[in-house]
Amino acid sequence: MMVVGWKTVAATALAAALLSSGATWAGAAWMMRERQAPSLHDIVHEQLRLSPEQDRRLDAIEARFAAERPALEAEVRTANRELGAAIAANRGDTPEVQAAVDHFHGAMGDLQKATIAHVFEMRSVLTPEQATVFDAAVAESLSRDAG
């Protein structure tokens, strides 16, 4: 009869746990990727049959927004941290908390306005037929994100 030491049992259990966790994570990542609807970028560049000129113009629009967006998102994160600090410091609905809420709403509003302007700028490059597909994709994306 063979006696298995506790170290062997522990190593086997650890290996099984790691393999199980890795397989679960990989499966979940695959499922999320499979269930995710195509992005607006994918729809524009893969389904609309853009002309070379449209593609060039859209690339320039996307590059400008990609440069602008990080600062807007950083301001939202800053405002969110300020709100957290104001709530922690004041422990109630004070003028300081309301000022932080207003800052957060303003930052979120600026990001949303810039995003919508970006979407309409992209749309301006499209033909009427392409714009119909694009509009439907935008509406679906907004409805999906709303839950």
Rank of each mutant, 00 (worst) to 15 (best):
W6S: 05
K113G: 02
E73I: 05
M108H: 03
V97S: 02
R64T: 06
L19K: 12
Q54P: 01
G92D: 10
A131F: 11
L111Y: 14
T115D: 08
S20K: 08
E73S: 12
A86W: 02
R123F: 00
A79N: 07
G106P: 04
H105T: 00
A137F: 01
L50S: 07
Q47I: 12
S51E: 13
T94R: 12
T132F: 00
G147D: 06
S21K: 13
L142H: 05
A79G: 06
V101D: 00
A29M: 08
E129F: 08
G5H: 09
L58T: 06
E68F: 02
F104L: 09
R56S: 10
L72E: 02
A117V: 13
A63I: 07
K113Q: 11
Q47L: 15
M2E: 10
D55S: 12
E140G: 04
I87E: 07
A85V: 14
R57V: 14
E46G: 02
T132G: 07
K7M: 14
M32F: 12
T78W: 04
F134Y: 15
G92T: 08
V9I: 15
R35S: 12
S51W: 00
R144E: 07
A114H: 03
E73N: 11
R69I: 02
A10P: 02
A89I: 07
P38G: 04
S51V: 12
T94N: 12
A10H: 03
E75D: 08
R33G: 09
H45I: 07
F134T: 03
A29N: 08
A67Y: 00
L19P: 14
V44C: 11
R77H: 10
Q54E: 10
A85I: 13
L19Y: 14
D42E: 13
D102N: 05
L126C: 09
M122V: 07
Q54G: 04
L72S: 03
A136N: 09
E129A: 10
D55H: 14
E62T: 00
L18E: 14
Q54V: 04
E46A: 13
E96N: 06
T127V: 05
H41R: 05
Q98R: 15
L18A: 15
V138L: 08
V3T: 10
V125T: 09
F120W: 12
M122I: 04
S124V: 12
P38W: 13
D59A: 10
N90H: 15
G106S: 04
A16L: 15
Q98D: 14
A139Q: 06
L14A: 14
V133T: 08
A15D: 00
V119R: 06
D59G: 09
S20L: 15
P38V: 06
A99I: 10
V4N: 02
L142R: 07
K7Y: 15
S143Y: 01
K7H: 13
T115V: 02
G92C: 11
S21N: 15
W25H: 11
T132R: 09
S39Q: 13
E96W: 01
